[in-house]
C-alpha cells in the first residue's frame, strides 16, 4: 500500500486497552481486515496506527457455557460454521454466516468486525438481533453490556465510544434451539452485497424477523405472530423499515422483495 501507517499487535487485553486509550483519535482496530484494508487502500480511511485485535490471548475464544455462546473479537465467520456448538445449538448463526461474502472472506472476516462496521447490509446482525445477543464493550473505564437491539446507531455507526472495543459477543443460552432461515437477495453469489436480506427465526411459537439493507441500521421486528396472515406479517415488517434507492436497487424494489420474502418465510412455518 502507498499509504503508510504503524502496526501494533498487543499480546494481552489490558495492553490493548492501554493502546486504544492512548490513540483515541487516530488508532484503528484491525480484526479480519476485509473492510479496513481495502478502505485504507482506496483512501477511505487513513489511520495513523493500526491495532491488531487478533493476537492477544483469548481473542479467538469461541465457547459455550452457562451464559451461552461467547465469541471473542478474532472469531471468524468460518469459525462459526465449523463450530459444533454453533451448528447444533444456534443454527441461525450458521444460516446467516454462510450467506456472507465468499469463502476466502469468511475465513478472515470476523463476527465482531461485521457488527462493529455497522453496515446496513451486515449479515451477522440479523442473527444476533433475533437471538437476543449482547455485546460486551471494554475500555480503560471498565466494561458495559449492550444488547444488539441498542448497539447500532446509524449507517456505519455504533454506540462504541473512542477507546472502547467489542471484547466479546454473548448469544444467550436461552436462545439455543431457535431455528430460522435467511433469504438474501443479491446478483452474484459470493461477490455482492445484499440488496435486501430477511431472516425469520422461530423459537417455540414465537417468531422474529430481522431485515438487512433496508434501513440505516439492521432492523428487528418482534410483532409478527403465527396467527398473522401473510399480508399482515408483510405490512408489520414493512412498517419498521425505510429502504433507500441506490446502485443496487430502488426503494420500491426493496420494499417489494421484503414483502415477498416475509410471505415466503411465513408460508414455510404455517
Amino acid at each position: 500500500m502507498i499509504y503508510e501507517f504503524r502496526y501494533l499487535a498487543p499480546k494481552t487485553a489490558s495492553e490493548l486497552v492501554a493502546i486504544l486509550d492512548g490513540n483515541k483519535a487516530d488508532g484503528k482496530i484491525l480484526a479480519g481486515g476485509t473492510d479496513l484494508i481495502p478502505n485504507i487502500r482506496n483512501g477511505l480511511q487513513k489511520p495513523r496506527l493500526v491495532i491488531d485485535i487478533k493476537k492477544y490471548a483469548g481473542a479467538d475464544k469461541l465457547a459455550f457455557g452457562s451464559d451461552g455462546l461467547t465469541m471473542g473479537p478474532a472469531v471468524t465467520i468460518n469459525d462459526i460454521l465449523r463450530s459444533r456448538d454453533a451448528r447444533e445449538r444456534f443454527p441461525v448463526l450458521c444460516e446467516c454466516a454462510h450467506e456472507l461474502a465468499s469463502h476466502q472472506i469468511r475465513n478472515r472476516a470476523t463476527v465482531a468486525g461485521n457488527v462493529v462496521n455497522a453496515s446496513p447490509c451486515s449479515d451477522m446482525a440479523p442473527a444476533l438481533l433475533c437471538l437476543g445477543a449482547s455485546a460486551v464493550l471494554r475500555s480503560a473505564s471498565g466494561e458495559r453490556v449492550v444488547p444488539f437491539a441498542k448497539f447500532f446507531a446509524g449507517v456505519k455507526k455504533t454506540v462504541l465510544s473512542p477507546g472502547e472495543f467489542l471484547e466479546r459477543i454473548i448469544v444467550p443460552a436461552s436462545a439455543a434451539g431457535a431455528t430460522g432461515r435467511y433469504l438474501k437477495l443479491k446478483r452474484i453469489a459470493g461477490h455482492d452485497l445484499g440488496i435486501v436480506g430477511v431472516l425469520m427465526t422461530r423459537a417455540g411459537g414465537a417468531l422474529r424477523f430481522a431485515v438487512s439493507s433496508a434501513a440505516p441500521t439492521p432492523v428487528l421486528v418482534e410483532s409478527v405472530t403465527l396467527k398473522d396472515s401473510p399480508d399482515e406479517a408483510a405490512s408489520k415488517v414493512l412498517a419498521a423499515v425505510s429502504p433507500i434507492s441506490d446502485v443496487r436497487g430502488t426503494k420500491e424494489y426493496r420494499e417489494h422483495m421484503i414483502g415477498v420474502y416475509v410471505r415466503r418465510l411465513l408460508a414455510e412455518v404455517k
Binding site: Y7, A9, L30, T34, I37, P38, R41, A101, I105, R108
Partner: peptide, 27 residues
C-alpha cells in the same frame, strides 16, 4: 483487484484460503 473481489491473490494461511491482498505481512 487488490480489494477482495477476485480471488487471484488466494493463498493458504495456516490451513485456510485467504485473499492475500487483504492481509498485512505484519499479521
Amino acid at each position: 483487484c487488490g480489494m477482495g473481489e477476485c480471488g487471484a491473490c488466494t493463498v493458504i494461511l495456516n490451513g485456510h484460503a485467504v485473499n492475500s491482498c487483504m492481509v498485512l505481512a505484519a499479521e
